[in-house]
Amino acid sequence: MSVQRVDPRPDASSVAGSPAAVSEQALGQDVREARRRRLRRARRRFLAIRIVSLLVVFAAWQLYGMHTIAILFAPITTVVHQGYLLFVNNGLGNELGYSMWTFAVGYAIGVSVGIVLGMLMGAYRWAEAAVSMYVFALYATPMVALVPIISLWIGFDATAQIVIIALFVTWPMTVTVFHGVRQIDAELMEVSRSLRLNRRQTWVHVLLPGAVPYVITGATQGVAMGLVGVIIAELQTQLSGLGSALQTQSQTYHTAAALAVVLLIMVLGVSLRAILGLVHRRLVPWLRIDRGDGREG
């Protein structure tokens, strides 16, 4: 866009020798109003592109689905309808509830363990020395490989599933938080020492808030990992939840219904991510600063 960039910084326009900071008001209401308008316009454009994209993809899906064999694919209208029928007739709601429950517990455990481990590893070299090799080894291992072993140890019930989900979430979370704490500006650590913050104050005012963006990044990655964990756990241990619905429908060649379950899982993932996005904006207001170019961040 060819919007003229107006520098909102007072210093940029101040004249040598003029007294104290030229105040924001001096710039006038119109500059700020222009910025706001530019931001609104950029947002609308973003939303419009998104809607167009969705329409194109759904239209393609619909067209392709209408001209292919029902066993292989189905138009989106059929898929949505089948999804509705699954809820009404086959108790998909219960399956969804079960999956969400195990996900919630496993995810909470994974995120908590990840925060604690990552923070300790980031802040204390002894903790890094003691555990980082295991963390990185597990991070690099596909967790699917551990599923049979876990079934062997714990069994096939909800507990085993929760452990599997937690394992999927924990390692990326730990690694992200670890890197987050590690990168907290060395200069800021020096400032905290100079301001004579004690250990507790340094955690509260510096380390924890500094790590928040990374915790949220890790938690967002964790949603995707956790959902993978849910489906794998449900397919590989006792068949249950959404995994069971998916398995049943696809093995009986109810492709449209199976696609409906997949679509549901996708919607779930997107919604959880969106919720975390809101949490992010809430918890990290200092990064949500209007840069005047329509982006935030």
């Binding site: 802040a123 070299r125 650590m189 004690n198 250990r199």
Partner: peptide, 14 residues
């Protein structure tokens, strides 16, 4: 030098 984490540094400050 990679020997101390921020946590330990807080202890040193103490």
């Amino acid at each position: 030098r990679g020997q101390t984490g921020v946590g330990e540094l807080m202890a040193m400050e103490g």
